[in-house]
């Protein structure tokens, strides 16, 4: 990911060029959505988080300090928001606010239209559901976002050693689940 180009776009946006923000969004929106989707397992929650992240980016980009890469900064936002959304969902479940209709709604509005792809996604989601939120976060960053441990460490603030151990446990659970199903 090209930092120089990103930094130029941020500078342009801070100077009042709204188009620069549009370019940044176009560049990163799919990464944001898919990270949220893999963390949350369904479209509606992922959509909510993605929009929240864009709003936060718009509001906070002026405070960007150019000390890290833009995508690292964005991942920090999206991964924190996704974890918060998981917590909110757990609370909704505890207080029985979640209706069965919501799941149906998520399926109906899904942006993945192909049935085979939907099944594939569902399978991945079921295997990720077995993981605690933090392990899921690391597994998603490492396996789907293809980030290095060093990058994940910068985003999450956790040690590389701790991340490796977490990924190992996540990997074991996911492969065990996939093996069971096969």
């Amino acid at each position: 990911m090209n930092n120089t180009n990103d930094f130029e776009l941020i500078e342009r946006f801070v100077a009042g060029d709204e188009k620069a923000f549009n370019i940044i969004v176009k560049k990163y929106q799919k990464k944001i959505y898919w990270h949220a989707r893999q963390m949350l397992g369904e479209h509606l929650d992922a959509d909510e988080v993605t929009q929240e992240v864009l709003v936060v980016m718009y509001q906070k980009l002026k405070t960007f300090n150019f000390q890290s890469a833009l995508y690292t900064w964005i991942y920090k936002i999206v991964t924190t928001r996704s974890l918060n959304q998981i917590k909110r969902r757990q609370l909704r479940k505890i207080f029985s606010f979640e209706h069965t209709d919501e799941k149906e709604l998520a399926v109906e509005n899904d942006i993945v239209e192909d049935i085979a792809n939907k099944e594939k996604l569902e399978k991945v989601n079921r295997s990720l559901e077995k993981l605690p939120a933090k392990q899921r976060q690391i597994f998603v960053m490492r396996n789907f976002d293809q980030l290095s441990y060093e990058e994940i460490s910068e985003i999450t603030g956790k040690s590389v050693g701790g991340l490796k151990a977490n990924y190992f446990h996540a990997l074991r659970k996911v492969t065990e689940y996939v093996n069971e199903k096969d």
Binding site: K30, T50, L54, V112, N117, S127, F144, V178
Partner: peptide, 18 residues
């Protein structure tokens, strides 16, 4: 597992996102 990154989606969603 990671191949789902290439899943085809309704692109209209991303066009309307911003």
């Amino acid at each position: 597992l990671s191949a789902i990154n290439d899943t085809a989606v309704n692109e209209q969603y991303f066009a309307n996102l911003l």
